[in-house]
Computed example of a mutant assay.
Amino acid sequence: MLVVNQLTYRYPGTTPGQPPLVVFERLCWSVDAGTSTAIVGASGVGKSTLLHVLGGLDAPTSGEVRVMGASLWAMSATARARFRNQTIGFVFQFHHLLPEFTALENVALPMRMAGVSAAESHRRAEALLERVGLGNRRHHLPTELSGGESQRVALARALANTPPLLLADEPTGNLDERTAAEVLKLLHELQQDHHMTLVIVTHDTNLAATCQQVWRLEHGQLTRTGP
């Protein structure tokens, strides 16, 4: 499902003559289809940057990312955006819902961008909101939802185009312990229901332990830590 080859990401030095900051270098790594994988590491080590590169949001300094055999960074920006919309779902620590849109409209938006009709995208969005337990909140704005509800809407939105790959960046990091446990349980249920490949970035080792594989990003390299 996901293969990286010689992947490198460097931040340029902030002052003249300062060497670049290497976040990761010459990574070679892969993830099998249908599995759940966690990437752990200390804050600031580059976990989110890696996830953004894997998802086609941030360009690497060098190297290759392949999703389902397609080389993300060999595509044009337009082709990559289209591929991302149809193939990769994202869930972030902060839900990033559009504040002027209802829950239903937020979930339907990726489908509308993919060319699905308004009627069909709304029908699918309603079904997804029912699945995450928010069918009765579909006409509410994000400001009228709790943090946990907003994150469940974000989950439904990530699944809008039934992506084979779901990337989650600290998906429970902004939630209280009980709500985080509920969202995590739902995330794994949805991954299994839709036969998706799930990659989670987190600093929470308890969350990571719920995945089939755990890798640690440290000193610019990934090392498998379990199970």
Rank of each mutant, 00 (worst) to 15 (best):
E130A: 14
G34T: 08
R131W: 02
G55P: 03
W215E: 03
G89C: 13
S48D: 03
V67N: 01
M75L: 14
L190F: 02
M68Q: 14
F92P: 01
A168T: 10
V67G: 00
R112N: 09
D193G: 00
L128I: 13
W29G: 02
S71C: 11
D193V: 13
A180P: 04
H203N: 10
T172R: 10
T87F: 06
F83V: 08
V199K: 08
W73D: 10
G135D: 03
L21G: 00
L129V: 09
A119D: 13
Q191A: 01
F101G: 03
R152D: 05
T202Y: 05
G148V: 08
A103L: 09
T179E: 07
N136M: 09
W215D: 01
T143S: 15
S121P: 03
Q6R: 15
P110D: 04
D193F: 01
S146N: 10
F101P: 00
A158W: 06
A77R: 10
H203D: 03
E25H: 13
V183L: 08
T179C: 05
G220D: 08
A81P: 09
P142T: 13
A208E: 02
P19L: 05
E177K: 14
Y9A: 06
T197D: 05
R152M: 05
R224F: 02
N206Q: 14
W29S: 11
Q191M: 02
G115A: 03
R216M: 11
H95W: 12
Q221G: 05
E189G: 11
L187R: 05
F90N: 09
A74I: 00
V22T: 15
Q213C: 01
N106H: 11
A79G: 13
E189W: 03
G115K: 10
C211S: 14
V132G: 09
A158V: 03
G226T: 12
L217H: 06
Y11M: 10
Q192P: 01
A127I: 03
R137E: 11
A81Q: 12
G34N: 06
N174I: 05
T205Y: 04
A74W: 00
P60R: 07
M111G: 15
E130Q: 15
F94A: 12
L166W: 07
T14K: 14
D204T: 06
Q191P: 01
L145Y: 11
L21S: 12
V53G: 01
E105Y: 02
Q191D: 01
F94L: 11
E25D: 13
E64C: 04
A119E: 14
Q221E: 06
T210D: 00
E105H: 08
T179W: 08
Q221T: 13
R82H: 13
L141K: 14
A168S: 04
V23C: 10
L159C: 07
V45P: 00
P164R: 11
N161W: 09
P20Y: 02
E130V: 13
L134A: 11
G220I: 11
A114Q: 07
V153H: 10
E149V: 12
G34C: 04
G55F: 07
G56Q: 06
S117P: 05
R138T: 13
H203F: 07
T205C: 00
V116P: 01
T8K: 06
Q213I: 00
V132N: 10
M113K: 12
G13N: 03
G115T: 12
M75I: 07
H139L: 14
A70V: 15
V40I: 15
G147C: 07
D204Y: 10
E64F: 00
L7M: 07
L165I: 14
